[in-house]
Amino acid sequence: MPDDAPAHVPATHDLGGASRFRCTPIDPDDAPPDAFGKRVDAIRQILAQKKLMTVDELRRGIESLPPEEYHALGYYERWLRSIAAIMIEKGVIAAEELR
């Protein structure tokens, strides 16, 4: 970046080149998702097939997570929070049903 570049802060999920991970080795873990992850994944697909949410809405929900939550939660935990938020937003379920 040139020194005089305006300071734009990329969104949390917009990770390309992010300096904070510059020296982080890549965890070679390549295990498939656990039972929790596979279940969330399947539910996401079913809701998409039934036209109740798009993958773009899923992403928007993930991107809306506060930065500290985004990085603290596991991959499918982010998905789950997004799916729940979108289902509540659309009135498919009520927030109380998840409490």
Partner: peptide, 18 residues
Amino acid sequence: GYPPHWYKSAAYRARAVR
């Protein structure tokens, strides 16, 4: 199939492009 864990990791996403 499913993407491996590392493909989804912040470190891979941040570093691969730079």
